[in-house]
Nucleic acid binder design. Structure first.
Lengths: 349, 349
DNA sequence: TTTAGCACTCTGCCCGTGAGAGTGCTAATG
DNA sequence: CATTAGCACTCTCACGGGCAGAGTGCTAAA
């Protein structure tokens, strides 16, 4: 791989584009003849052969073995995605399909996420994922406390976007439900509208102020708050359409596939990718070996962030073989992210 | 298949048992020689051969082709599970492992379920599932109402076992949070301690009594209750270790595998099995073609119910190839169900 | 009733062969 | 000088024969 990839002339670009398109649809090494024919006979196979040899030397194409056709490298795909492909926008029908499926889910956040993975996987033929990252900048709508048993309290947190999280907290002392209600009221008046990270700061700060300690109720509230929100809430991952990836010819290798599915189950692995992807604030394509997670080395990821109002909430997208149809999937992910953002933002006025 | 399977003599039983054991561990057709050798030379291969021919005629064994070894049929496994195998109890170490992993999860129901699928899949080498069926007979601990936006209210339901469910309800009128709090208090006083199906009945009955309609608050409460609990809450399914099943040699067929994974994603399919399984009130083994869901025809299911107090909550178990190690997995599922029940029952005193 | 022996069958593997696809190189062409 | 036609070469893959191995079923002997 070279530091500055050499700029290609028009013909080289044409040949590379045609080769990759062909390979994406056929999954088989493509020879010079079939490319030459695609050109409408304007070039002979021999010429194309020469061009392809150049492209192979640049590192955009490779041969499985001498005297086989050419296959795109990750670098080739990168070039294709960055400057060669022309995105094929969704059809009206597809847009309507997506819209129709999202419409009835206004405010049902979990359902919305699940539906998004389904849509993404169905329309792309790959795996759809939706990532809800650490929720530090979600705003708190309300906190409820429910007395479960002697020393156990269930803390329920509702965010402005309608998500519900709960956590069980074990207390040192027994607090009856009546008292819990008072504490909840106090807690709500303190934190409503704040982001979670602000809440965490607030709790720490107020705990430090010793004068707070004279108010038993406040002390209780702060202790509870600390126990509930001390640790960062880890992100959630929705995933759908894993069955799709089994068919892909690149997954004949059973062991590769096993480790891939194991990775899908281990959510933390997927959150890793997210971090890489939230950094850039727009649609991102990660191709094969560019991926930090080794189980995904043979896969590509197309992800786009989605928003709730002006808060970045998470990212969603598609995981599939590097040989995926980028020109179709990129607009799909883009549009889905837009619609999910719109749905989420509609709830908080 | 015969109506009354012929009772086998001791030798036939011995041979069948040895054959199935051998096949379970090797996954290859087993010949008469290897069985004869296992016997400690008490029988010649020729004799075993005759016995196996009988067993094949009875339908307990079959041959992939003439002059190959024998393979157990579903009927053969059935016989093995019912009367041939001797369950191999968990080792102390395994029991402790399970106990240790469950102990810190007292009351964290969702976590407990997830951990159970992990344990089941790890220790069995197959897929672990936990099914929480329609929750009609869960008792209500508390209901909370949170005002989300103008006409949207989030209804949060906490069960006695510590599960949290929520649902968004769209109202015809705007109800401020203050009012919601009053409604919630009323609702709680009405339904605390009832089962969900009782709540549903109550709401219907009270709605019918016209006199209730004069009390605006009560009317609101009932309307809300109806909207929240009208439809049966469908069961939830936790599933883990799907990666395990990929390695199994019986899943070389890609299309079979794809449809299987699609079935795993479609939870409703799995709930079907549950129904079949809750009917019998103990540990159940469903073998291959006995299964009603066609995607699972080549698989076996070992499931056991678990309880919260004296209420049957759901079932959990293992899905794997028919060639699974029943004598180990049956005790595993049994013990796991016992421990999950104990954990769940510990919360509600 | 059990066992030894034997002929038979079916699979899986190795290996050589040949067709097919595609390349790289060279020389001819516009 | 870029392009093309031609050709020898290489590599894969599918096919088929041959062979070893495993296992059976049957028969006859113990």
């Amino acid at each position: 791989m070279r530091e500055t990839s050499p700029e290609l002339n028009e013909r080289q670009r044409e040949v590379l584009r045609a080769t990759i398109r062909q390979y994406i649809s056929s999954a088989e090494p493509v020879g010079s003849r079939s490319i030459a024919r695609k050109y409408g006979f304007r070039l002979s196979s021999a010429t194309v052969r020469n061009v392809m040899a150049d492209l192979a030397e640049f590192g955009f194409l490779s041969q499985p073995h001498t005297s086989a056709g050419r296959v795109p490298t990750d670098l080739g795909y990168r070039c294709y995605v960055d400057s060669l492909m022309d995105p094929r926008p969704l059809t009206r029908a597809e847009e309507h399909l997506i819209e129709r499926r999202f419409r009835p889910l206004q405010g049902e956040v979990e359902e919305l996420m699940r539906e998004a993975t389904k849509l993404l996987s169905n329309l792309s033929g790959s795996v759809g994922v939706v990532l809800v990252p650490r929720m530090d900048h979600l705003t708190v709508k309300r906190i409820e406390l429910v007395h479960l048993s002697a020393d156990r309290v269930l803390v329920i947190l509702v965010t402005a976007s309608g998500q519900v999280h709960h956590k069980m907290v074990v207390l040192d002392e027994v607090i009856p439900q009546e008292e819990l209600n008072r504490i909840a009221r106090l807690l709500n008046s303190l934190v409503e509208g704040m982001s979670l990270s602000q809440v965490r700061q607030l709790v720490v700060r107020r705990m430090a102020e010793e004068k707070a300690m004279y108010d038993a109720l406040l002390r209780c509230a702060l202790t509870l708050g600390q126990k509930s929100f001390a640790e960062e809430m880890e992100g959630d991952v929705y995933i759908g359409g894993t069955a799709n990836i089994i068919q892909q010819p690149e997954f004949a290798d059973v062991e590769k596939m096993r480790s891939l599915f194991a990775a899908f189950e281990e959510k933390s692995k997927l959150v890793k990718i997210l971090d890489h992807c939230v950094a850039q604030q727009g649609l991102t394509v990660i191709i094969g070996s560019e991926n930090a997670v080794w189980e995904l080395q043979r896969l590509s990821v197309v992800m786009a962030p989605y928003w709730c109002g002006e808060h970045l909430l998470g990212t969603l997208g598609v995981i599939g073989p590097t040989r995926m149809d980028y020109s179709k999937i990129v607009p799909l992910v883009d549009y889905t992210a837009t619609l999910v953002s719109r749905s989420l933002s509609a709830v908080v006025p």
